[in-house]
Simulated scan of single mutants.
Amino acid sequence: MEFTAKRVGVAVVAAGAAAVAIGATVMAAAADPVAPEVVSATPADAGHENEGKYTAGDYVLNVHELDDDGQGTSTAIGPRTTSYSKTVHGTGSWTPTVVKFSAGRDGDGPIVFSYPVPAPGRTVDCVASGTEAAPQVRCETKPAR
């Protein structure tokens, strides 16, 4: 194979693009961004007005309600199960600011989605889908009834 300036240039550009893509992926994972709040007009489920609602997909969903220091509670929810959290707005001396999700039986697995805790008088409704290897979580902020 003959190396020409054009082939070398194309190879360098392709390698540079791959390096940028890998670097962006690593930086995005390290930054652990919080998804923007999505507001719904549908009210919270009756009887659960001030609670977070989390529905797992076909795998164990780990829900981490955390404050700014990363302290908080974690709950594992079984496959195809819905759980309500009375601590989504805190316990009096502790107030969470973000809900983070991981998938699988290892509760300390990588965070796959983060969502801000809504203001008092509003609640969060999150539904997991996809697979354990490629989990997806969608959350909405809903008004209390």
Rank of each mutant, 00 (worst) to 15 (best):
A134P: 00
G104T: 05
A35T: 03
A15I: 02
A29L: 03
S74L: 13
C139Q: 04
R138H: 14
P36F: 04
R138I: 12
D106M: 10
S102D: 08
P120I: 07
S40P: 03
A28L: 11
A17F: 08
S40N: 09
V13T: 08
D125S: 04
A119C: 00
C126Q: 07
C139R: 04
A133K: 13
P96T: 06
R7M: 13
Y54P: 02
A46W: 01
E37A: 14
G130Y: 05
P110F: 15
E65G: 01
V34G: 05
S85L: 04
S85Y: 03
T55D: 12
I77E: 11
E65S: 11
Y84T: 00
G52A: 06
A134V: 09
K100W: 14
R80D: 13
G92W: 15
Y115V: 00
V39W: 02
G16C: 05
P135C: 12
G90Q: 11
G70W: 13
T131C: 15
V124Y: 09
H64T: 00
V39I: 05
A5H: 06
S40H: 07
V117T: 01
E37K: 10
D32Y: 00
I77A: 07
Y54T: 00
V99E: 01
P118M: 06
V127D: 09
K6N: 10
G130F: 09
T141S: 14
V98M: 05
V127S: 07
T42L: 07
V39L: 01
E132K: 08
D68K: 02
P110E: 15
P33Y: 14
A5F: 12
F101W: 01
F113T: 01
V127T: 05
G70P: 05
R7L: 12
P96V: 07
P33I: 05
G90W: 12
R105D: 14
D108G: 07
K142L: 01
V117H: 01
A17T: 01
R122V: 00
P118V: 00
A14E: 02
V13C: 10
T42C: 02
A128N: 13
A128S: 10
V124R: 03
G104W: 12
V88T: 06
A24C: 05
V137Y: 14
R105W: 15
T75M: 09
D58E: 15
A30R: 13
V12K: 08
